[in-house]
């Protein structure tokens, strides 16, 4: 029986969808069968990030309303095929079109079929969020090093605990080591000081993410990308491995030296 993890944040735009896509692809590349569910009804975009938009025929709402069988709605990934599938959200309906009981039923069915079911939650704390967390065993909270995002993450952690989803884990996204070093950005310990939950990973800000998102190819398997490396580490930690955190604060000289030594442009 698979594990159901909801990926949520409270605040919008912190990278929930990108995180879901990359963790999904990462877990699939490590040999797991993964199903991604976009629960952001009315504002779907996990399909876009995965580059699967043009293959959608049925969506989550069609499944719960019985317009199609579950398997018909699952879209196989371009790269990982059967091992990474997406259940897209409905684009033309409203969030309250799905009831929590229907979500629960759907998740129960998916959990039998896959090793991991990742639920991409909508921003906010209303109906859509409640739908997303209803069937989950565990939660990953995504935040960025901004006061407002951390505040919302804190709110979400409180709500998750109230919904008996204890011990959520944290991903801190879009960290800029240069800004942290200058004291212009909250550092990891500042965030940890407030949220005090286990940190699952720290993902550096990376322009390549924007490129990969637009192209519809997760960055997780890009060996040159630091963000990709961070996501690979997160996946290994989800699988129970102890992986040390990335050294983000490399000194410029050291980088320059490395470049010369390895003879490649990083």
């Amino acid at each position: 029986m698979g594990k159901v993890i909801v990926i949520t944040s409270g605040k919008g735009g912190v990278g929930k969808t990108t995180t879901t896509a990359n963790i999904g692809a990462g877990l699939a590349s490590l040999g797991n069968k993964v199903c991604l569910v976009d629960t952001d009804i009315g504002l779907r975009n996990l399909d876009v990030v995965l580059g699967l938009e043009n293959r959608i025929v049925y969506d989550l709402l069609d499944v719960v309303e019985g317009n199609c069988r579950l398997r018909q709605a699952l879209i196989k990934d371009k790269q990982y095929g059967e091992n990474l599938v997406l259940l897209p959200a409905a684009q033309t309906r409203e969030k309250d079109a799905v009831k929590p009981e229907q979500m629960l039923e759907l998740v129960k069915e998916l959990r039998e079929m896959y090793d991991f079911v990742l639920l991409d939650s909508p921003a906010g704390i209303e109906h859509g969020f409640k739908n997303a967390i209803v069937g989950a065993d565990a939660a990953i909270v995504v935040t960025t090093p901004e006061v407002s995002a951390v505040r919302d993450a804190d709110r979400i952690i409180g709500l998750l605990e109230a919904a008996e989803l204890y011990e959520p884990q944290l991903i801190i996204n879009r960290v800029r080591p240069d800004m942290v070093r200058k004291g212009d950005m909250m550092d990891i310990s500042d965030i940890d000081d407030i949220l005090r939950i286990k940190i699952l990973g720290v993902v550096p800000d990376d322009e390549d993410i924007i490129v990969s998102t637009n192209r519809g190819e997760p960055i997780v398997n890009d060996k040159r990308s630091k963000a990709g490396q961070a996501f690979r580490n997160i996946c290994r930690r989800i699988l129970g491995e102890e992986v040390p955190f990335l050294e983000l604060q490399e000194r410029k000289m050291l980088n320059w030296f490395k470049k010369i030594l390895s003879g490649e442009a990083r």
Partner: peptide, 14 residues
């Protein structure tokens, strides 16, 4: 003695 003991962190919105 009318004191409430809260054994957890009170988070944003609570």
């Amino acid at each position: 003695e009318n004191t409430l003991l809260v054994r957890r962190t009170i988070r944003s919105g609570q």
